[in-house]
């Protein structure tokens, strides 16, 4: 059985709170078109921490990791391919 120690969980919580601070701080810096991407990158980092350390996705094995990535891939297709239309409207 996989048991996560309290210390490690607490450490992750601290990291998550710190990253929340980072993303709020970053929002005060205007990077133009990159604003969204920076925000998404930080959010993805936080999400990865939750997935790995709180949800123990690694313990579940290859199938769950791969299918999770597949879901995210499908989601990015949904968003990305819509832009074949939206980004090219005359």
């Amino acid at each position: 059985m996989h048991i996560a120690s309290y210390g490690r969980l607490l450490g992750i919580l601290v990291a998550l709170v710190a990253l929340t601070g980072v993303t709020v701080a970053a929002s005060y810096v205007d990077l133009g078109a990159f604003n969204v991407w920076v925000a998404l990158a930080i959010a993805s980092t936080k999400a990865s921490l939750v997935l790995i350390f709180f949800m123990h996705i690694g313990v579940e094995g290859r199938l769950v990791v791969l299918s999770f990535l597949g879901t995210i891939f499908f989601l990015s297709i949904m968003i990305g391919f819509t832009f074949w239309d939206v980004a090219f409207r005359g």
Binding site: F81, W84, D85, A87, F88, R89, G90
Partner: peptide, 9 residues
Amino acid sequence: MSDTAVFVF
């Protein structure tokens, strides 16, 4: 929708 999308899809 855009012509590009018509082409790609």
